[in-house]
């Protein structure tokens, strides 16, 4: 056994982690097919958190999920009212 082998994970060590990686991809896919129904709830909860700090109305928070091959992008779009922006600028000096 060379010194290099010592630092390299053993073949079986890699084995379980290969399983985990494969599963993560499969599961993301499966959920993409039947578990996107959390989006409305996500939108509502985000709104609750944001409105703790700034006044925004319901239509100013948009949540979208885009799927592209193996990869999904969750897009959040929050439009802050003018007043908030001015306040932030003032605070920054």
């Amino acid at each position: 056994m060379s010194l290099l082998d010592f630092f390299r994970p053993s073949p079986s060590k890699r084995n379980a982690s290969v399983a985990k990686e494969r599963l993560q991809i499969i599961v993301a896919h499966q959920r993409g097919n039947n578990r996107v129904d959390y989006l409305p709830l996500l939108q509502r909860e985000l709104l609750e958190v944001i409105s703790k700090y700034v006044k925004v109305d319901k239509n100013q928070v948009k949540v979208a999920l885009e799927r592209d091959g193996d990869c999904s992008v969750l897009e959040l779009n929050i439009t802050l009212p003018e007043a908030v922006l001015k306040e932030a600028e003032a605070a920054q000096g």
Binding site: P9, S12, K13, N15, A19, K20, Q24
Partner: peptide, 17 residues
């Protein structure tokens, strides 16, 4: 078997599900 890396660990399964 988990220790030898042959089997998914509790944490692996928790992470996924």
């Amino acid at each position: 078997r988990v220790k030898r890396g042959e089997m998914l660990s509790v944490k692996d399964v928790e992470d996924i599900l």
